[in-house]
């Protein structure tokens, strides 16, 4: 009986202690909740910027897949738990249009291109064809020059591409196809590419380049800067700017308007990320966005392009449906 009482006592005590510990760590509930869909390197860069500027311990960072965070934004609007987000810009645009949920940024930032008042980019990422030169030679395959080439039957199960349903990098490829070809032609090309990718259709944007690195497939579509870095690191990787163009996507920082309960620290942190985080972000995502930033010539793609229609979630849905029809 004594033992039994003890166990009740001990477990009650344990609840109180862990409650106190968990409680202390979130005491006051004043931390900024920071949702992001960024890749690991970008998250680390942003954390470094915040921590070294006195915000350590004042924010909770939570990472999501693009589609998950996008869904949350569109579903919850201003009710979202987050105070601060970084997210693919087209999602921020759509969320603002539907839910009117972001504050105008109040700090100075001089971008090279023009962006809406409620967000400013943290990274810019371009798509390109990536090949493993050794594997390509071993297989005796021709070097593809365009996205259209990727639909060529000789590449059956030799290419890896990101799937548009889970990855915005996948969207960059679809933009290539849809911007250059008539609908019928685009369908044939996309179907061919999907068939060639077969088991190497990846749900993550960096999945294909991993497969090229390991030599599992000789050809992939992925983010250009990753291939540039691999080549510099001495890997047998080469990048090809497709003749259809290098399309790009930006990810941006935005502050949620919680009306009276808006945490003023959120805006400060957004500023801190842009002012102090860009330097480290540029190491991984080398495309210049702000005045005074310059790009390594290798990181300047041959054929930068912008899709004819504005990028929105609706357009993404439309393009996803197009891909579904090609499966």
């Amino acid at each position: 009986m004594k033992l039994f009482k003890k166990i009740i006592l001990v477990s009650t005590a344990a609840v109180l202690v862990s409650g106190a510990l968990a409680g202390c760590s979130s005491s006051g509930n004043k931390e900024v909740v920071f949702y992001t869909n960024a890749d690991d390197e970008a998250v680390v860069a942003m954390q470094n910027a915040l921590d070294s500027n006195g915000y350590s311990g004042q924010y909770i960072i939570q990472t999501f897949g693009t589609s998950e965070l996008g869904g949350k934004l569109l579903a919850e609007g201003k009710n979202i738990e987050a105070d601060l987000i970084t997210m693919s810009s087209y999602y921020i645009d759509s969320a603002q249009e539907e839910k009117d949920m972001f504050l105008d940024l109040t700090f100075d930032h001089k971008t090279l291109n023009e962006y809406p008042s409620y967000y400013t980019p943290i990274t810019c990422q371009e798509g390109a064809i990536i090949v493993n030169t050794e594997a390509l030679e071993a297989e005796g395959l021709a070097v593809p020059k365009s996205i259209k080439d990727l639909s060529n039957p000789e590449y059956l199960e030799k290419i890896s591409i990101p799937d548009i349903t889970g990855s915005s990098t996948g969207w960059l490829l679809v933009q290539d196809v849809l911007s250059e070809y008539s609908e019928d032609e685009a369908k044939t090309i996309m179907s061919g590419i999907l068939k060639n990718a077969g088991p190497h259709l990846e749900s993550s944007g960096s999945g294909p380049i991993k497969k090229v690195r390991s030599g599992e497939v000789p050809i992939a579509f992925g983010l250009r800067h990753q291939a540039v870095r691999d080549k510099k690191d001495g890997l047998p990787i080469e990048y090809i700017d497709p003749t259809e163009g290098n399309f790009s996507l930006t990810e941006s920082v935005a502050v949620i308007n919680h009306d009276n309960e808006t945490n003023p620290l959120a805006m400060e942190m957004a500023e801190c990320i842009i002012k102090n985080g860009r330097e480290e972000l540029l190491e991984t995502y080398p495309t210049p966005i702000y005045e005074g930033e310059t790009a390594d010539p290798e990181n300047q793609s041959a054929n930068p392009k912008v899709f004819s229609q504005p990028l929105t979630v609706d357009l993404l849905t439309e393009h996803t449906e197009f891909v579904e029809e090609c499966r």
Binding site: T66, S67, E68, A75, V313, T317
Partner: peptide, 8 residues
Amino acid sequence: MLGSAPNF
């Protein structure tokens, strides 16, 4: 519920 185009 939590995907890219949630429809509750």
